[in-house]
Write a protein that binds this DNA or RNA. Structure first.
Lengths: 237, 237
DNA sequence: GGCTCATGTAAAAGCTATTCACATGAGCTG
DNA sequence: CAGCTCATGTGAATAGCTTTTACATGAGCC
């Protein structure tokens, strides 16, 4: 009960790291109660400061949300960059790793994810945020360009940009509808990862890519995440 | 200024149709300011009643939101049913009409759409809502089943349910990322409809469907919604 | 030591959600 | 048609949030 005062006594008049503490508190709150449930006053309480203190660091509640979305895009970009790993060991493998990373981010960082995509923030009204968002998307586009370059030459194919948008929409659709631990999730007869992997493989086949990969093909050894069966889905009936 | 009292004089003590009026007011507010910006008190004001009146019709703010989502799913189902039109004049044409209907709904009914998909409502905690959601999805599943039945027999193919989930995720991804008039939209070098149509066509080709449809194929005459070019996308470079 | 400014606090105004006791009148009942 | 009843509204009150303003504190610098 005397929690805040204890903290106050501990730290003195000045917090010392309030901005960080508020961001962290907001993240916790958002992951618990969604971006709508998060409260400026709650974050202040959690940091042990008065309700007015946060205004020294953020113009208003929305600016705090924007900051979180901003960080989210940065972490997202880092994660996608790492997953893509410049296309190693081979383009298709790396490509699928990016898809899985997308889902992993949505699942492991629901607070970031909802601040980024579901908070109703006007992304295009905030240049900084927009830029961060585009840097993240650029990873997907780079991957799509690499993929487009190795597409079978005989077939007509869409611009790399369009491929990137296709992949983005698939990933985002699966993540939004089925990917969170949220109550907003829908039941699914399989994992989101399996669903997305199959979707992307069918799409790539539609572009003329051979997709009959065997687990030993070019991937490093290890437990295959998907049991090898007839294809990206279960045994055909 | 004496607006509410005028209304009050007009209608007397009892509103007569308050529940409907509140739902309509909430829709207006949500389409203007997003699901987070909508306020119970505002809706009451707009209907010309006291802030306590809505509680005679909805347990709380969330129940009103749920009702809107509920209606949204019903209208959505009706729209998809009409678009699917039981697969006429041919399965693929009808299928694409469903995709367009999905985008049209997101664009024309942003308030419903956000209440349904972005309000953070616990869909799976509300059986009625869940059921409505599933009825809407059932249309997509029915379409996918019809499509699966006419898939080329030579190729392995995923369960119809999975195809339906794939299509849903594509539609939802495109609609969420690019499909609204919102500020949340991203810039796009093409229309969401074109993007989704190309995506679905590539996917279908990946399943072995021939997708070199000509405008005169089986479609009734009329202005083709997409200018006939080399394929579902622009001229290959 | 003393000054200054970033950082916090307290208090207040204005908003919202929600509840409760009370008012109204629409529609049934006789 | 009189009277009753109950669904539907009202007013007022509580509690919480956001944001602003005047004031307090003390960390860092001369």
């Amino acid at each position: 009960m005397s929690w805040q005062k204890d903290r106050r006594a501990e730290r003195g008049y000045h917090h010392g790291n309030l901005k960080e503490a508020l961001l962290q508190a907001a993240l916790d709150l958002i992951s618990q109660k969604g971006p709508a449930g998060f409260t400026f006053a709650d974050a202040a309480r959690m940091a042990g400061v008065s309700p007015a203190a946060p205004y020294r660091h953020f113009r208003d509640r929305d600016e705090l949300l924007s900051s979180i979305a901003q960080r989210g895009f940065e972490q997202f970009e880092a994660l996608l960059t790492q997953a893509w790993d410049d296309g190693r060991p081979d383009t298709v493998t790396a490509f699928e790793r990016v898809g899985k990373a997308y889902l992993a981010f949505a699942r492991n960082e629901p607070a970031f994810y909802s601040a980024m995509f579901e908070s109703g923030l006007p992304v295009d009204a905030n240049p900084t945020l927009m830029a961060a968002s585009e840097r993240a998307f650029a990873i997907i586009r780079a991957a799509a360009e690499r993929l487009a370059a190795m597409a079978p030459p005989g077939m007509p194919r869409p611009p790399a940009m369009m491929m990137a948008l296709h992949i983005w929409s698939m990933s985002h659709g699966v993540a939004s509808l089925f990917g969170r631990g949220d109550a907003a999730r829908r039941k699914l007869p399989m994992s989101p990862e399996e669903l997305l992997e199959a979707e992307v493989l069918i799409y790539l086949r539609g572009l003329g890519f051979p997709t009959d990969r065997r687990p030993s093909d070019q991937k490093p050894p290890g437990p295959p995440p998907v049991p090898p069966s007839g294809g990206p889905w279960g045994t055909p009936k």
